[in-house]
Write a protein that binds this DNA or RNA. Structure first.
Lengths: 109, 109
DNA sequence: ACCAGTAGATAGTAACACTGAATAGTGGCG
DNA sequence: CGCCACTATTCAGTGTTACTATCTACTGGT
């Protein structure tokens, strides 16, 4: 998609994934497919898995192994209380940034 | 300010600085002060200088050394045609991301 | 002579997304 | 049975970016 998106995703992709999990539990492959569908056309497979491991280690999500009819068992991730808290902060940070950017774009000082 | 902002700034700070330069030429110290004033409370001094060198090497800005009444000479940066083009693309990328994020936030699918 | 304020440069570090490849399980087809 | 497509996860290595901390350098005031 271009280097610009890649760099801009740093810090936001994590929030995006947590926001997806806030709606309902999901597993890596599912999340990747969802992102692709939503226009993040070439988010690498591995990227989402690495991110999920990170948030798991930080204790923002709970994990459950669920057998799949097709393929190896799925690791289903659920946002926990700490994750919800973190997500709230993410939205505050995002709002802060988005406001500043919008102001800049309007040429406002 | 927190690690979240730091990571989110990756990829956007560059656009922010270019957007500032789109309004009028400026030098590093000035840009840093402006950012602080606008709420980016702890953007490190060095960060902006490093970024400016990067965009200069990519040919997005023109540079002119201007003697200062107080302190060493200033390096005044001006956005050139290529930089404006890059900035346009930045805004397109930003819009794409912001739209997706807004949708996610509304809980929309 | 010293210090605060202005102005810029730089070496080393941490975090994050990407690339590319490997591993594993299931079902269908010849 | 052997092969392939699809599902699903893992991992080592790389590039980019912002931060930390420090250093240089010039001016004016005490």
């Amino acid at each position: 998609m271009g280097k610009q998106v890649t760099e801009m995703l740093k810090g936001t992709l994590e929030g995006i994934v947590l926001a997806v999990l806030a709606r309902q539990p999901a597993y890596g492959y599912e999340i990747t497919a969802w992102l692709r569908e939503k226009g993040f056309s070439d988010i690498a497979e591995g990227t989402v898995y690495a991110l999920l491991i990170r948030v798991e280690q930080r204790g923002l999500v709970d994990v459950e192994k669920v057998p799949s009819e097709k393929g190896p068992p799925r690791k289903v991730y659920t946002l926990n209380a700490q994750g919800r808290e973190y997500l709230d902060e993410f939205w505050r940070t995002w709002s802060f940034l988005a406001e500043r950017l919008d102001q800049l774009r309007e040429g406002g000082n």
